[in-house]
Design a protein around this nucleic acid. Structure first.
Length: 191
DNA sequence: GGCCAGGTGTAAA
DNA sequence: TTTACACATGGC
């Protein structure tokens, strides 16, 4: 049995199902994916709660909102100048494409997202997997640490890590979803 | 008070 | 192609 599958079983037994992404709606997942860029999730929660309290967590409101207003609401998540712009761009895309993104090929969706300024590989893959249920494995800082710890891969490009898991598991969105979340749970216990 | 967190774009070597 | 740096807040 492949070691990657074996480690998955171990994590699952230890931590149980994680029920990711921590967000209720598809749009909230998209917003959260941007806000969490190099940022602690606790700070992202504050920003999302601000948006909810302001009844601003929907595409039309975000697009129509004054830039300074948006920056103030997302301020706790840090990098708020950049992120306000990134939220606007991803929201423009979302308004246009959320309807048919679900029927896109996984790589077609990924490539569309990567064309958006401020949406890099991890953010694109998080949106594709957790927002649209596409089988793309998400690589983050925890994933690299996990791979290094278990000697799966030490230095590599983002896609080297992604393919390592995709090749071992097969294109299974449900497993990708759970595995990534479990790696984060593992990572928070192993600092 | 310093370090770090579920990255990304840009510029320079 | 690789490396360095800016971007910012809140928790410990």
């Amino acid at each position: 049995m492949d070691r990657i599958l074996n480690l998955y079983d171990g994590l699952y037994r230890q931590y149980g199902p994680q029920r990711w992404w921590p967000g209720e709606t598809q749009y909230e997942i998209v917003i959260g994916a941007v806000l969490t860029q190099n940022t602690a999730w606790s700070n992202v929660e504050k920003a999302i709660n601000n948006l909810k309290s302001a009844k601003a967590l929907d595409p039309n409101t975000i697009i129509g909102m004054h830039e300074d207003r948006l920056k103030a609401l997302i301020r706790p998540s840090g990098f708020y100048n950049q992120k306000a712009e990134r939220l606007r761009l991803i929201t423009d895309w979302y308004s246009e494409n959320s309807g048919n993104a679900g029927s896109m090929d996984r790589m077609e969706l990924r490539n569309q997202l990567l064309e958006i300024k401020g949406i890099g590989r991890e953010t694109a893959d998080s949106i594709a997997l957790y927002g649209f249920n596409k089988p793309i494995f998400v690589v983050d800082a925890y994933t690299r640490r996990f791979c290094s710890h278990y000697n799966l891969l030490d230095k590599g490009d983002y896609d080297d890590y992604r393919l390592l898991f995709e090749d071992a598991i097969g294109l299974k969105a449900k497993v990708f979803n759970e595995y990534h979340a479990l790696i984060v749970a593992w990572g928070k216990e192993n600092k």
